[in-house]
Amino acid sequence: RALPCPAHVVFRYQAGREDELTITEGEWLEVIEEGDADEWVKARNQHGEVGFVPERYLNFPD
């Protein structure tokens, strides 16, 4: 997929490290980079905060 792209959060995730982003179910993010580890992506939330989130917690519109 082309980046950046929108993504809808389907599961809540609490950041466990400083470089991760806490996300809430129902929130929209902008995915800006593929992650440095499998199944992680770097995203920006509506407040401009950036961090890594688990890709499987997101839904990408067609």
Rank of each mutant, 00 (worst) to 15 (best):
R1W: 04
A2H: 07
E18C: 11
D38C: 11
V9N: 05
G16D: 07
A15P: 05
V9A: 13
T24F: 07
P54M: 13
Q14N: 13
G48A: 05
A2T: 15
E25Y: 15
A7P: 01
Q14M: 10
A2G: 15
I32C: 04
W28G: 08
A2Q: 13
E55T: 13
W40D: 14
E30K: 06
L58R: 01
D19V: 15
E25T: 14
T24S: 11
E18F: 07
Y57L: 12
D62G: 11
I32E: 04
K42H: 03
A37I: 12
Y57P: 03
G26R: 03
Q14I: 07
V10Q: 02
D36M: 14
V10N: 06
G35N: 07
E30V: 08
T22C: 07
V10T: 09
F52D: 05
L58V: 07
V50E: 13
P61N: 12
I23S: 02
R56T: 13
D38I: 11
R1Q: 06
R44T: 07
C5M: 03
E20G: 08
I23Y: 00
A2K: 15
A37P: 10
E18A: 07
A37K: 15
Y57G: 05
D19E: 15
E33N: 08
L58K: 00
Q46V: 10
G48H: 06
L58T: 03
F60S: 04
R12Q: 11
A15D: 03
Y57E: 03
E27R: 02
G26H: 05
G51E: 01
E30W: 08
E25H: 08
D38L: 13
E25C: 06
R1F: 14
V50C: 08
E20K: 01
F60G: 04
D38Q: 13
V9W: 01
E34R: 12
T24L: 11
G16A: 13
E25L: 06
H8P: 01
E49G: 08
A43F: 02
V9Q: 03
P6R: 11
P4E: 06
E55Q: 09
F60D: 02
D19I: 10
E34M: 11
G26Q: 06
E34V: 13
D38Y: 10
E18Y: 07
D36G: 11
Y57N: 15
D62A: 13
Y13D: 03
E27K: 05
V10S: 10
R56Y: 09
L58W: 01
R44E: 07
V53F: 01
T22W: 00
E20L: 02
E55N: 11
G48T: 00
E30P: 02
F11N: 14
D19A: 15
N45P: 06
V50Y: 09
Y13M: 03
W40F: 09
Q46W: 07
F52A: 07
L21H: 02
R44W: 00
E30T: 11
E49Y: 05
A43E: 01
N59M: 10
F60Q: 02
Y57F: 13
T22R: 04
R17L: 05
G51R: 01
E18P: 11
N45I: 08
P54G: 06
P4T: 09
L21F: 03
L21V: 05
N59L: 09
E30C: 06
W28I: 13
E30S: 10
H47S: 14
W40T: 10
D38S: 13
R44H: 02
G26N: 08
V31S: 02
W28F: 15
R44I: 12
Y13V: 02
P61F: 12
L29W: 00
E55P: 10
K42N: 03
C5D: 00
G16M: 13
D19K: 11
A7K: 00
E49P: 00
R1V: 04
W28C: 13
T24Y: 09
V10A: 08
C5S: 04
I32F: 13
E55C: 12
R1E: 05
Q46N: 12
Y57I: 06
G48Y: 04
A2L: 13
G51H: 00
V50Q: 10
G16T: 12
K42I: 15
T24M: 12
E34Q: 12
R12G: 14
F52E: 06
L29G: 00
Y13S: 06
P4G: 06
A7T: 01
E30G: 01
P61G: 14
P61K: 13
A43K: 02
N45E: 00
C5Q: 09
F52G: 04
H47E: 09
P6Q: 08
Y13G: 05
G51N: 00
E27W: 01
A37R: 15
G26W: 04
V50T: 10
R1G: 07
Q14C: 05
E25Q: 07
G48P: 03
E27D: 11
H8C: 07
H8F: 03
L3D: 04
P61Q: 14
K42D: 03
L3C: 10
W40M: 14
L3F: 14
Y13T: 03
Q46M: 10
D38R: 14
A7N: 04
L3S: 08
E27M: 03
D62F: 05
V10H: 09
E34S: 10
E30H: 08
T22D: 10
P4H: 04
P6G: 08
E39H: 15
G16N: 15
A15L: 02
N45W: 00
H8V: 06
I23D: 02
V53T: 01
R17M: 10
D38F: 10
P61E: 10
F52C: 08
G51P: 00
Y57K: 07
E18L: 07
L21A: 08
G48M: 06
Y13F: 11
D38W: 09
P6A: 10
E55Y: 08
T22S: 14
A2M: 15
R56M: 10
E39S: 13
A2Y: 15
L21P: 00
N45L: 02
V41W: 08
H8K: 07
Y57T: 14
G48R: 05
V9L: 01
G26S: 04
A43S: 03
A2V: 15
W28E: 11
D62T: 13
C5G: 05
Q14W: 04
T24A: 10
E49R: 11
F52Q: 07
L3K: 07
L3Y: 15
I23W: 03
Y57M: 12
P54S: 10
G35A: 11
V53R: 03
E25I: 06
F52W: 14
N59K: 13
K42F: 08
D62W: 05
V9Y: 03
A7L: 01
P6V: 07
I23A: 02
E39T: 13
R12C: 11
D62Q: 07
F11W: 11
Q46R: 12
H47D: 13
Y13Q: 05
Y13K: 09
